[in-house]
Design a protein around this nucleic acid. Structure first.
Lengths: 131, 131
DNA sequence: GCAGGACTTGAAGAATTGTTCATATTCATA
DNA sequence: TATGAATATGAACAATTCTTCAAGTCCTGC
């Protein structure tokens, strides 16, 4: 096995580790879209979106082609969809299985319960929630 | 708005975005293992591994159970394997399709380095595309 | 009870990544 | 050609994440 493959994998996943980038990939699952449309849906500054698109381009997850005045982005491989699907299923499993559900609820209502629920559900030594 | 689900996804992927953590998950695919063994295979300081394990625990990708003197880690869901498999296939596609091939070849020749090879081989700011 | 091994934790500084703002670039139209 | 819209880039600063090191907890065996 080639040595730094896990290194490449880590970089790859880091690429996905940003809400705007995830958003973009999800939107592109339905087909190519111009920046303008992405921008309309993603609530982020134009230049920030551009930066994130650049990251996706660098890692070749998306392709960009210019069409006159606008630039149209597309997924460079449909495998990405599959990856996102798997990720979602892991996530929803985790959310329903574990107490993270509570966080989700609490985030909506901003209740003030001392923050214990999800932690108590889990046996290991750790007491901080992800935030 | 269904609140930030894509946010959770991003966090989830970020969790995978570290070579040691990927390594751990890959090793755990073959079954539970004590820290000692992970440590033997991962070439990283004990406390650093511990920190990374803590990250994986927090996001509930792994579980830890104490067995006497040692702590045994395991994947908390087999879905993780599937995710890693999909990721690998995307990556290898990308590598063979695109010029990243070079990096891989180069990485193989200086075989025994812990990952700096790939790093050096690939300038992190790569602006070679946007055909 | 205490010594030592196996792990974990906390905290500080280093490194990486994200945001923002100002400026470029590219194209379309007047 | 000048203007303006759409997008990209660079650079400065803020925020997050990593590494390391010095303790800290748990357990086992003496």
């Amino acid at each position: 096995m080639p040595v730094p493959l896990y290194q490449a994998k880590a970089e790859f996943f880091r690429t996905l580790g940003h809400p705007a980038r995830i958003r973009v990939l999800e939107l592109l699952q339905d087909g190519p879209r111009p920046v303008r449309e992405l921008l309309a849906e993603i609530d982020i500054e134009a230049s920030s979106l551009s930066q994130q698109l650049a990251v996706l381009r660098r890692t070749q997850l998306v392709t960009a082609t210019r069409d006159g005045n606008t630039v149209v982005y597309a997924l460079s491989t449909p495998d990405v969809s599959e990856l996102l699907r798997t990720a979602r299923s892991i996530l929803t499993d985790m959310i329903t299985d574990q107490g993270l559900l509570l966080d989700q609820l609490r985030a909506d209502t901003d209740a003030d319960d001392g923050g214990r629920g999800a932690d108590a559900a889990r046996p290991s030594t750790d007491r901080t929630l992800l935030a």
